[in-house]
């Protein structure tokens, strides 16, 4: 494992910690898209099925369990916590997630490394992760009042994707057999989706203004 991969994983972990802190400390999930969170949970459930049949390292196993548990906790809070669920922007968070899930599933059936159930679910999780942030980005454009924790959450997620690309570039040169074009293309698309957000985040930050995204 290289430094970019580790830094990427830690940023990913921090993004989830920030989100859980926001929910638990402020008892509010305002500005957070439940649809994005549910898709992340689905991504982890499909991808980490390999917990049952393959072992990579203790680090991998522990991280997978943390990601599963924390994303399930976030979805639980937003859907079922008596106080938190009242702060959910139900009327604003209207992105149709089947428009993302169905195409990803079809694409995973058509383009994959091996036509087996676990491999197709794994591929599906790669495709879905690439676009799962979209409802969150749309929600942030609609609610012009983005709080700091939400902004930092998305910033950390975007940074995690950027670091993973550096990790792949590093692996491309250091591991001759590492040629994952399927993962690369999805990952590049995913990082590109954050481009706009990054632009406005730093623009507002430089001029000391509150973060807003133009509609």
């Amino acid at each position: 494992m290289n430094i970019f991969r580790l830094a990427g994983d830690m940023t990913h972990l921090m993004s989830i910690v920030v989100l859980l802190l926001k929910i638990r400390a402020t008892k509010s999930c305002r500005g957070i898209s439940l649809r994005t969170q549910e898709m992340y949970l689905l991504v982890f459930l499909c991808r980490y099925l390999d917990l049952f049949y393959s072992f990579v390292s203790l680090y991998n196993t522990v991280m997978k369990l943390i990601f599963l548990a924390s994303s399930a906790a976030i979805v639980y809070y937003m859907r079922y916590d008596r106080v938190v669920k009242q702060t959910y922007d139900r009327r604003q968070d209207t992105f149709r997630y089947l428009f993302l899930i169905v195409p990803c599933l079809i694409l995973a059936l058509l383009i994959n490394h091996a036509f087996t159930l676990t491999e197709i679910l794994w591929t599906f999780s790669i495709y879905l992760e690439a676009v799962a942030i979209l409802p969150q980005l749309v929600l942030m454009q609609r609610t012009q009042n983005i709080d700091n924790l939400t902004g930092n959450y998305v910033l950390l997620l975007g940074t995690y994707r950027g670091l993973y690309i550096l990790n792949w570039i590093f692996r491309f040169f250091t591991e001759p057999h590492y040629r994952q074009w399927l993962v690369w293309i999805s990952g590049l698309l995913q990082t590109a989706l954050y481009g706009d957000f990054f632009y406005y985040y730093f623009k507002c930050w430089k001029s000391n203004k509150k973060l807003t995204l133009p509609a």
Binding site: R5, D9, H12, D50, S54, V56, S57, N60, M63, K64, F67, H113, A114, E119, W122, Y164, N167, E175, H177, Y178, R179, Q180, L182, V183
Partner: peptide, 10 residues
Amino acid sequence: AATAAAHDEL
């Protein structure tokens, strides 16, 4: 082996 390589990431 090509597929196994990517599965070591999270």
